[in-house]
Write a protein that binds this DNA or RNA. Sequence first.
DNA 1: TGTGATGTGAGTAACGTTTTCCACGATGTT
DNA 2: AACATCGTGGAAAACGTTACTCACATCACA
Lengths: 341, 341
Amino acid sequence: MQPSRRVTIVDVARHAGVSTTAVSKVMRNAYGASPEMQIKVRAAIEELGYRPSAAARGLRGQTYTIGVMLPEMRNPFFADILDGVTEHLGGTDYQVLMAACCNDEPGEIRITEAMIDRSMDGVILIAPISSRRHLQKVARTVPTVVVGRHGTSPDYDTVTDDDFAGAGLVVDHLVALGHRRIAHIEHAERNPVRLKEMPNAQRADGYRHAMQAHGLGEFIDIASTTYTQQGGYLGAQQLLARAQRPTAIFAGADIVAMGVLDALTEAGVSVPEDISVAGYDDTMFAAFGPISLTTVDQAGHQMGANAARLLLDRIAERNRPTAQIKLSPTLIPRRTTAPIS
Amino acid sequence: MQPSRRVTIVDVARHAGVSTTAVSKVMRNAYGASPEMQIKVRAAIEELGYRPSAAARGLRGQTYTIGVMLPEMRNPFFADILDGVTEHLGGTDYQVLMAACCNDEPGEIRITEAMIDRSMDGVILIAPISSRRHLQKVARTVPTVVVGRHGTSPDYDTVTDDDFAGAGLVVDHLVALGHRRIAHIEHAERNPVRLKEMPNAQRADGYRHAMQAHGLGEFIDIASTTYTQQGGYLGAQQLLARAQRPTAIFAGADIVAMGVLDALTEAGVSVPEDISVAGYDDTMFAAFGPISLTTVDQAGHQMGANAARLLLDRIAERNRPTAQIKLSPTLIPRRTTAPIS
DNA sequence: TGTGATGTGAGTAACGTTTTCCACGATGTT
DNA sequence: AACATCGTGGAAAACGTTACTCACATCACA
């Protein structure tokens, strides 16, 4: 009943009457163990309830641990990605551990370093906001896949949604419903590199491009705030104050659309009769009956599965050229968008 | 530019002209290092960019890692708890790593074992559904705090919400609004131990008790499904089929209330005019304008902070008697509940 | 001038794996 | 018959840190 000493590989080896090398080989399915040896060793492992120490393993070889960094936990879209990752890794020996971040660069640096310190075999960074320099540094130390950030690198693989096209889907949808004054709420971004690489910037670009393509360049109207509920609230207030109010608002993220709905309700504007509203992400709550938000599905599950696959490939072959996977989003029309009246 | 060898404690020691013991002491703020030594060593650490290997540390001492097990990622209530944990641990050297679970016992076993294998210094288990036996086993191996599960143990500390009282708050609120036919949707539970320990069971008990206390015993009406959106949908359908429809539905969780709203909308019942609806958890979406769900706030942030505190205490002193912390919930009235018409 | 404390620092043996050899016998090839 | 090849298994050296033990000053006190 006392805190009994941990069962080690030495105990297993002795119990099976073989060397520790043999046990190690069996544990790792490594080459050089005969079938009889495998059976003998596995039996001993079973009987003793042996579990290898990740710490000791990490000192020499792998830790069979994959780290996933999330910018936050409240956006269910990230849960979709994670599901894809864990599902793909389900059959393997790898264990996924996550760390949620504070959405700032120092926090991201702290977390990535913590993962490196813990000798993780690979990391998946979801929508990181760190400088490109930092990402490269991480990727040169540990196999890395970056999800939800555009731009290519020789050091890490990427998986992204085609945000440019996704924004186009929304504009197309609204134009087909007869809207012309279609406004957009974006996440303000100054940094020139991020301006190219972050999804929010791509969405804004896609919006502009689609508006031009429909000959609606003169109606382009962007409120620049943040991707938060508060940002949506403020953005909608700005747009309502325009001389010519928009008939449709394309919020860059579902959570932004929630703020928009709050502001519109407060202003006595009804949705979708007076103004149509669309979001982006297809987060869980977008589907709830009372909300029923038109939005864009990013196929988070597939993004996660692809990220996991790329990471395993890279762990297996460190110097493989990097890959960029871009997935196509789909429009999910619901009840917050309607034909113009 | 080549994968340069990692900087170790030996490099730091040589660079500072001291022993590795000294460096180790400084890293851990351990006793026995003079101020001059501290300065000298810290300078060397800085210059060389040294970071200790958690794997090597784990082999002898601590890993400075705390594991948090979550039953799922989509319930934002868990994010609140996590915020509390990370905030409390912010100033320390500990790093929090999470693992999301599949909400079944094999999955929980896999995750807890993975955390033990990785020599984590402590674990926080949030709303675990595993057998008590397994929890005890984990707690005897590694310092453990269990959050959101009632029942005491000599091996682990607990932090819970007073679910019994919380359910009472909801019933009180509805009774004050004039309701008498107040129905409840619970998460079905057979296992006798869990029946006592799980929050859902406590909520159902609290509901029954409060109804009795108000002299409404005859109106007690429970639909037994699951704590999911689907469960709420089915539960509401059952309740609508009663000879005497309830005038208020208390769903055991916010996500259940979402399903209830779907079913009511589908049946042409308006909320709160025809039927009032209340949830539990005060999840993020409950506050969204179009939903505006009356619910109960569990003070997740405080739960997390308390759990972290207890865990640090237990890590410091392993054989301290265990503590049970119970936090009081508060009712958040919103627009889905109204006086009976 | 001894005699303990006390404070500071170093040497060294773990910790539990994996990896790199090497040895040995069996098998195939000239 | 000589020689290479292959399959199997073991011995022992890492890996980077911490815990334990001990040595050596310094200082206070009788």
